[in-house]
């Protein structure tokens, strides 16, 4: 679905070439996968995201979307139609001043007849559960609602894949929960391929696969469970682990033999209970 081969990129600030942002990066994302990309600020996450729909072109190596090379200029719009993008600030990606008109923006650009646009807009708004607000002005909605409108705007193109660049970074906890719920729904119902770039470990824990980046490389690429159990490695990269993992890990370090291979509250509680039981039966 999405493939990066020996991807190389650096920003040119006009004076001199700055450090390489992406350095020989290889990544292959399969259809229907939900991949979370983690990494501290400036590790090249957003730059990577912009390669997936041809906003940036590789300086070295290649990026393929459904087998099409993003360097192929004639196929650029085919690629963009297949990869929906959602960005951090919802205010700066909403174009129109009525919700439904904004969701219609992409299909309008694709030259789809108006009856079909209507259908796509309604479907997209229902998927993100914003259909009730279709006549509202976007600036009067909450952050989470705005971001859901932005997601609807992307899925109205009927893309194969959706790439989100820290969509929850500017939202309150409630808005974040709304957006995560929408992402999980998209994956479950539409079998959408999702690439989620995030700072929140709890969000990454919900993914099928976690990719940890550092200095333009991929350091770890595995299931959330296998990634988050490497607590020391993540900490050395300036990253956190989910709160429950952190708790179990700290207990473990203090000499309590608690299994810290946990991602959810229930799992953590079970692990602690197991430990307590083992002590009880041991005594």
């Amino acid at each position: 679905m999405l493939k990066a081969e020996n991807l190389l990129y650096s920003y040119d600030n006009g004076v001199k070439k700055v450090d390489t942002v992406l350095d020989n990066l290889n990544l292959n994302i399969k259809k229907g996968e939900f991949v979370a990309v983690l990494g501290h600020n400036g590790c090249g996450k957003s730059t990577l995201a912009k390669h997936f729909n041809g906003l940036l072109l590789p300086l070295g190596g290649d990026v393929y979307v459904q087998g099409i090379n993003t360097k192929d200029e004639e196929m650029l719009w085919t690629i963009r139609r297949q990869v929906g993008m959602v960005f951090q600030n919802p205010d700066n990606q909403i174009v129109a001043n009525v919700v439904e008109e904004d969701v219609a923006f992409a299909p309008e650009n694709l030259g789809i007849p108006s009856a079909e646009i209507r259908k796509r807009v309604d479907d997209a708004l229902k998927t993100v559960d914003m259909y009730r607000y279709r006549k509202h002005a976007p600036h009067l909605l909450s952050g989470g609602q705005k971001q859901r409108v932005a997601i609807a705007g992307a899925i109205a193109m009927r893309p194969e894949c959706i790439v989100m660049d820290e969509p929850t970074a500017m939202l309150d906890p409630m808005g974040r929960a709304e957006v995560m719920e929408t992402i999980l729904k998209l994956k479950a119902q539409e079998n959408m391929t999702v690439v989620l770039i995030t700072h929140y470990m709890d969000e990454a824990a919900m993914a099928d696969r976690v990719v940890v980046m550092d200095d333009g490389h991929i350091v770890v690429d595995d299931t959330p469970r296998n990634v988050f159990s490497q607590v020391e490695l993540l900490k050395s990269l300036g990253l956190d682990v989910p709160q429950v993992t952190e708790l179990a890990y700290s207990l473990n370090k203090e000499g309590f033999d608690v299994n810290y291979d946990v991602l959810t509250v229930t799992e953590c509680a079970d692990a602690i209970m197991d430990y307590v039981r083992s002590i009880k039966s041991g005594n």
Binding site: K50, L55, M85, F87, Q93, V95, P107, N109, G153, M157
Partner: peptide, 22 residues
């Protein structure tokens, strides 16, 4: 940012654009 978002949504100018409400 808006320009990038618009490009990501396949905006290529007025040619060949249709409207939700003609």
């Amino acid at each position: 940012e808006l320009a990038i978002a618009m490009e990501s949504r396949c905006y290529t100018g007025g040619d060949g654009r249709t409207r939700l409400k003609e």
